[in-house]
Nucleic acid binder design. Structure first.
Lengths: 259, 259
DNA sequence: CGAATAGTGTCTGTGAGACAGTATTTA
DNA sequence: TAAATACTGTCTCACAGACACTATTCG
């Protein structure tokens, strides 16, 4: 358990003679779903796309290459707090879904030395990134469609991190209610379906409405939205015929392969 | 992204003036299921219990207290390789299920300094720990029932780590086929049920046999064991009436809350 | 009217769940 | 023969899946 015998007791604990890490950054894969009106002015469902935020490095190593936002951890903060701080600094947003998912510690992964990186994924509703988008292509901070990001040659092992993050968010999209991160508090079944499909293109459920609305089959994940008088709330922001609005109930189902 | 401006380019990269971590250990929560014959000589199902392995610390800090096995990572290995190495050193076993699950980085969690710990969980079949058990209570390495371990005052934040690991292994027990780590290659439905219940006491399925054997309902997670001639294999090691043996097929089901 | 989205009617099959009953071997 | 484990028969109900059909509003 001990790195050396110098650490045998408190009195002779000075500094380790052993090699210690040169840094422990938190890196963040920030996902968002952009939506764009296909036919402006017409009531039609928007085109949605899963995007992630990258920054262009200003310094050695990998100067000029795109990388994940992130930064080094301080002694007086946890890696989670570090990620939260960096997220605020990079994107100006707080109070978004932020979740640790893996550590990257392969030797020589960083030419600056022995650096162990902690990877987080953040799910940010596009409305929080509104200001950011204006800068667009010219800037050193920019959103990329995931398909595009996967094909890029990113700094460090950030390509691996992005792939792992994508895999993770796809699994969680189907097994938890994180879809809510990309939706308003009240939404239609059609919107929910579109969001799921944006993240997990393989997810195909004809009759999705039927399944989500049939009695207690979905174990009460969703509930119809109602106004103060208890009347059902409907919306026609994306459709001709008004659609029932739903909200997540807050209960997370427990999944099992055995029953 | 940079900790300081000293790192601006390769030529003037020497050593950081900034504080860097004092160590990055891997700690391992080693679970096993012990089984003990209730009535020796009688053909009856054994009593099973979920246990985990702890070591008693020989040095400051937390001298004399029980802690998770683990050790400091070297620069030329990943945290996973470090965990694997420590697992071999502590228990003498290799080729067991070993899985990273979380990082612990709360400031001041370790009185020796700024130490970020990477926690793994290992699932070890009790037959691999056979030698270890002989030493038993007197030794500095010993198995504890999880209920007992949870009530102990462990070194560092290892109590938190154990709780998180238990939560994790319970979820995975129901959503993946890791039950196979605690079972022989061929087993009866009764054994499988017992193993699941040992890890997740809340799991109650009267009619478990029915569910697991009814047509393709379990999507082919299990298949009946057959000998060279294709005849079904049965066992009566734990029962009077011989029971059908099964094996995991290797296919992991994909779960979804949406359909 | 046609396009676009939202839903419903209806049928078929199959699994979940309950629970009592039967089967096989051992002490 | 009683105990212990391993199944099986049978019934009911609900949902999954398919797919065509209706509903509502916009341009």
């Amino acid at each position: 358990m001990e790195p050396n015998n110098e650490l045998e007791n408190e009195s002779n604990y000075t500094a380790s003679n052993y090699r210690t890490p040169d840094g422990a950054p938190s890196d963040i894969v920030i996902f968002t779903i952009t939506s764009e009106e296909k036919a402006p002015g017409k009531k039609t469902m928007p085109a949605r796309e899963l995007q992630l935020l990258l920054i262009r490095r200003k310094r050695w190593p990998f100067e000029g290459q795109w990388a994940l936002p992130g930064g080094f951890c301080d002694e007086d903060e946890s890696v989670y707090d570090c990620a939260k701080r960096e997220l605020l600094e990079e994107t100006g947003v707080a109070d978004v879904h932020l979740e640790y998912f893996n550590v990257y510690s392969k030797p020589k992964r960083d030419p600056r030395g022995w650096i162990i990186s902690h990877a987080f994924l953040a799910l940010v509703n596009e409305r929080y990134l509104a200001g950011r988008r204006a800068q667009d292509d010219a800037a050193d901070v920019r959103l990329f469609p995931v398909s595009e990001a996967l094909a890029m040659d990113l700094a460090f092992d950030h390509g691996d991190i992005v792939r792992d993050a994508l895999e993770k968010v796809r699994v969680k999209m189907l097994t938890t209610t994180i879809a809510k991160q990309f939706l308003p508090a009240e939404f239609t079944i059609g919107e929910l379906y579109q969001v799921i499909r944006t993240v997990v293109p393989d997810f195909e459920e004809p009759n999705f409405i039927r399944k989500m609305t049939s009695t207690q089959s979905r174990e009460g994940i969703l509930e119809p939205a109602r106004d103060e008088n208890g009347a059902l709330k409907r919306s026609n922001r994306y459709s001709q015929r008004a659609a029932q609005l739903y909200r997540f109930t807050g209960c997370e189902p427990k999944l099992s392969i055995y029953g």
